[in-house]
Design a protein around this nucleic acid. Structure first.
Lengths: 196, 196
DNA sequence: TGGCGATGTATCGGCCCGATACATCGGAGG
DNA sequence: CCTCCGATGTATCGGGCCGATACATCGCCA
């Protein structure tokens, strides 16, 4: 999961760990809490030992750093780029609370339309299944659950509905060959296109 | 996290692992994927070795089971009940995607009003912080992000708005001394009360 | 000059997950 | 009648990710 995100960011430009984390937070912050260093550094190590990224200790010529203990700059390799494309195309059986979908979505601009549609539709299918499960729980076991638990189920059900609608719009946009932007989840009527 | 949920369910009635998982899925399914056995059994073991639950191997008198390899029934102890109350009252610095809030909420019927308010307000504060962060990202870095990433941020921001509104309503209800139910997040005009 | 917050790298214990294995039971279908 | 299958049921293993923690430097403000 982190692999994909890290490779994606390093694909754009080489970076050191701290900066990487900041960019990860900005890019994935919408659906995911900040990445912990306890995940980041081991992952970098794993990627490095797998030959997907390389380490460029820059003890020389780093503007804000005088000398010793220079920061470690990571760079993606050719194998890393291949692996990135591979991970990008592969949409696992992610569960609804799996951050995998979000990471894939965040890199949709590097994906072809067919893959985008496949991932969006897969996501929609999973959310619909979940919604069905919640409906069943509410219908069958409503008597045995207390008011707070019921309220929680309702809220979850509501969130499902909204996400399905969101995905519907994205899929429609995708099929008509457009880019997302101000389709809006909240019934705002189409504006003129915002991004070139 | 699982500790609280398991103790809570066993507080209601003794159960074996399989049944426990089903109930967990029903109770927490709104915000959390199904609990894995790879988490459940080790957790039961941990709780047991901590003296919070006990094991009642029922090789005798189990209706649908003839003899050997009987299911293991877990039962909460007095220490377990104490620990449950302790965990219930303690609202950690959970992040927005932390399931901890959901578990706490699911057991609100066993909590006093002051604690409920404290947890709801804490949650709201964290969501508001997150929302602020997303707004900043959208305002400051919009130029450097592609259309899909932006759409993701918008969706996340929207989800924050809705959750804050939901929490606002719950807090208001709580303050006025009521139980949740059909306040409704989606502007439905109050129905006649559904639950007695 | 002294402290403080941001930058920066790194490890450790521990929770939780997905995959996997194995065993029993009741019923549907050949 | 017998066999296969899905539900019930218990359990482990490797691995990813997290929170807490440690440590060092830099620039700035008091």
């Amino acid at each position: 999961m982190l692999d994909l995100a890290i490779l994606g960011l390093l694909h754009e430009s080489a970076m050191h760990g701290y900066e990487l984390r900041k960019q990860l937070t900005a890019k994935l912050g919408a659906f995911r809490a900040a990445i912990s260093y306890g995940s980041l550094y081991p992952t970098l190590r794993r990627l490095q030992s797998g030959g997907l990224i390389t380490e460029e200790s820059s003890t020389t010529a780093v503007p804000p750093l005088t000398s010793r203990r220079g920061r470690v700059v990571y760079k993606i390799t050719a194998e890393g780029k291949e692996r990135f494309q591979e991970l990008l195309a592969h949409a696992g059986p992610e569960t609804f609370d799996d951050p995998g979908f979000g990471v894939h979505f965040a890199f949709f601009s590097r994906t072809d339309q067919a893959t985008r549609l496949r991932i969006l539709e897969g996501r929609r299918r999973r959310i619909e299944e979940r919604r069905e499960g919640l409906r069943n729980t509410l219908a069958r076991a409503a008597e045995r659950l207390d008011a707070y638990t019921l309220e929680l189920q309702r809220h979850g059900l509501d969130a499902c509905d909204r996400e399905v609608r969101w995905l519907d719009e994205l899929i429609a946009t995708e099929r008509s060959g457009g880019q997302p932007g101000r389709g809006t989840t909240t019934s705002t009527p189409l504006d003129p296109p915002e991004r070139p």
